[in-house]
Structures are given as structure tokens and as C-alpha cells.
Design a protein around this nucleic acid. Structure first.
Lengths: 221, 221
DNA sequence: GTGTATATCTCGGGG
DNA sequence: CCCCGAGGTATACAC
């Protein structure tokens, strides 16, 4: 990784045009070639950047970084205050818990926490509007579409409504009903869901991880 | 700005839980107090971070950064390879030339490219759900709501649907119909638009700039 | 590759 | 203060 502290001026042209007037900033060049320009205030993310792969040309007091899509980042240096290189080596990636993907996986393994007797037909069931998180069947044989969210808000209700409208056009599935499953559901989302005849279930994440630990014994496949 | 290169391990708990195993990384502390952990590869944005305002406690080989919302970032150091501070001073912000805003402006000047005989009543027509990009009238006198997007996706159809539902409650405007205008529209968005009786128009941005150049002569106001 | 959905989204504007 | 909308969104994942 190369770290340059310098008074510079930056121009980006590509998907839009952006300009940074002359000031002191940090320029970070990572091992994969991506370039980021940081100021000392404001945000954790860079003001301007160029993702890899790109082509960096170091000219006379000027860097030109361009990529295949025709985007260009030009950094014009007035004064370089510091320029250092560091060998960081490979680093293992970030492991995340508690994102929607994991919630979906946990629910797919334990759909009964949503409703007694529910079983999963498919995850990511495709429709021509996009994939339904979980397609299930209840003990009576009715198909149930489940939309999984970390936080249940109006968007989730809209999404579930779209899918149901689509699923119910398929005579092999109809009538399909819907469940919005989330760790927390806002009152507005509940109201809209109720108006559309959709069920809401709040899911206790920690309890679900407990269930996962026990499920293999309690519900052998 | 403080830049620390170190072998470290990072744990974030808050809106989710995330863990970075021991490896060499860059830790950036900006003047406003925000902390970011960068690896040497992958992305231009940090793996882990904590936005300002927060509270940083430097302990024995360990930093604990926490904020009012109860989020916590813990960095445990094994070996510090470099630790430097730089005074960058204030920097002027980023100036952008937007894209959707310009597309909207171009269409407002040449609504007839969307549909023969269309004229603009108002840009950013306010509703209590948000502003309608373009409110137009067709030759028959019917009001037409236009949602302008750079890329036409399902979100845009939902947005237009909400606005239309709102506009059609106003007897002075109803019945209002809708057009989704974008440089490119996905098949799924077309499907949903068709199901809702909304029109889709793909707009050639460059051609539109041509029209703008010619319009003053061809279509004098 | 295309397209959808998520994100510790971030960031800004308006009520 | 929240809500909404846009982002050079980036990123992951399925078809």
C-alpha cells in the first residue's frame, strides 16, 4: 500500500464529472491498484476514487488513472508532503453475522418458528420480478411466500405484495399467502401488511441460532 | 490525520457483528475522529469503520471505539509497524455535475421525445409522498406523470405507482397516467410497468442533447 | 453477463 | 427528528 499526503487538485470524469479544488489530502493506492483520495474530515469513505482494474500513469506532478470504461481520475500535485509504501500482505476477509443472508439461512432451516408445521419448498424461488426469499407450504397444503428482512419496513411489504401478485397468477401455486419475517417490524409496515392480508412475524435472532443448534436432533432430516 | 500500519484483529458489534482475523492492515483516524480499517486489497472502502462522533480509548495494545448508539469497534494490536500523523487542514468539498438532474432538465425542455404532443405543466410537482419529476399534459388534455431515471428498474415503477395513486385522488388532475423514462429499462421493470398500465420510454441521452441544441429553432417557445 | 436485492449502506434535502 | 430519494452507489448471488 502506498500512502501519499499532498496538496493536490482532483478531477474525475466518467459516469459524472466531479472536481476537488487544491488542498491537502491523502491519496491511498492499494496493492490491487485501486486509488482513493481522502480528506481529513467528513466521511469514512473517500471523496474520489478509482476502482481496480485501472491504469495509473505518473507524469510530471500529475497522476492520470483511467480504466477500460473510459473513466478518468486526474490528480495534479502542487506539493508532496509525505510518500510511503507499506507491505501488508494478504489478509483474511471480513466475517459478518446478523445480515439478511444469515437470517434467511436460519429460517430456511427452521421455518416452523414462523408458523407451526411450515416446510420449505425452495429458497430464492424465481419469479419474473425477482426471487422470493422462501417459498413454503403449510400443513393444509397452501403455498406461503416468506419475505425475510433484518428490519421489516414498508419496502418489504411492497416487495412481498409484488411477489404474491405474481405467484398467484400461477394456477399450480395459487392461492398463495404471505409472511413478512424480520427481527423488528415497524408499526407502519404492520399496518400496511394488515391492510393487504399479509402476516408479520418478528423473529428472535438469538433464539433462532439456539434452534439451529438443536434442530438436527429434534427434527432429523 | 493519523495513519497506523499494524498487525491487528478487529471486532465490530452494533448493527451487526463483524470480525477481522489477525493480519496487517491500515488504520486511519481522521481529524473528526472517524476510524477506518483498510486492507491492502479488495475495495476502495474500508473493511470496518466507526463514524464520528465517537469515543476512542487507547488501552494496552488495544483501541476501543464506541458511540452513543452502543456500537463498538475493538482493534487489538499485535505489532505496530508504523504510526504517523499529518496535518491536512481544511479542504473544500466535492463539486459534482449530476446526471439524473440533467436528464430531467433535458426532458423538461423536450417532452415530445417521450410522446408526440406532450407538454410540461411542472417540474418536481409536489405530492405528500414526494415530488413528481415531470407533470405533463397530452394533446387530449389528460395529465401524465413522468418518472425520470438514469436506469429504469423496479424501484422506479414502484415510485411512479405511488405518485399516480396520490395524483389520482385529486379530482382536478384525475385520471392521470404514467410514463417511466430512462436511458435503459430492465425487462422486469417493463413487466411490472405493463401489469400496472404504465408506459416505458427509453431515452437516448446523446440524441436528447442534440434536440436541446436544435429545439430553440425547431420548437420555439 | 444481466438483473435483483442488500448495505453497519452514506449522504443530502424537506417537512 | 424522521422520511424519502439518489448514489460514479458497491457487493453478492442467482439465472
Amino acid at each position: 500500500m502506498r500512502l501519499v499526503v499532498a496538496r493536490c487538485e482532483v478531477v474525475y470524469t466518467g459516469r459524472l464529472s466531479a472536481h476537488l479544488p487544491m488542498a491537502t489530502r491523502l491519496i491511498m493506492v492499494k496493492a490491487d491498484g485501486c486509488v482513493a483520495v481522502h480528506s481529513d474530515e467528513g466521511a469514512y469513505k473517500p471523496l474520489n476514487w478509482m476502482t481496480a482494474p485501472n491504469h495509473l500513469v505518473e507524469g510530471e506532478g500529475e497522476w492520470v488513472v483511467s480504466n477500460r470504461a473510459g473513466e478518468k481520475l486526474v490528480i495534479r500535485f502542487e506539493e508532496v508532503l509525505s510518500d510511503s509504501r507499506h507491505v501488508l500482505g494478504p489478509a483474511p476477509g471480513l466475517a459478518k453475522d446478523g445480515v439478511e443472508a444469515e437470517l434467511q439461512r436460519l429460517l430456511a432451516d427452521a421455518p416452523f418458528v414462523l408458523e407451526e408445521g411450515l416446510s420449505v419448498l425452495r429458497r430464492e424461488y424465481p419469479t419474473d420480478l425477482g426471487p422470493v426469499d422462501l417459498l413454503c407450504r403449510d400443513p393444509s397444503g397452501q403455498v406461503v411466500a416468506v419475505e425475510v428482512k433484518r428490519r421489516g419496513e414498508i419496502d418489504g411489504v411492497e416487495q412481498l405484495t409484488r411477489y404474491l401478485e405474481r405467484l398467484n397468477r400461477d394456477p399450480a401455486l395459487a392461492p398463495v399467502r404471505g409472511i413478512l419475517a424480520a427481527q423488528a417490524i415497524t408499526p407502519q409496515a404492520r399496518t400496511l401488511a394488515a391492510a393487504r392480508g399479509l402476516a408479520c412475524v418478528e423473529v428472535d435472532y438469538d433464539a433462532l441460532r439456539e434452534v439451529e443448534g438443536n434442530a438436527p436432533r429434534l427434527f432429523p432430516v
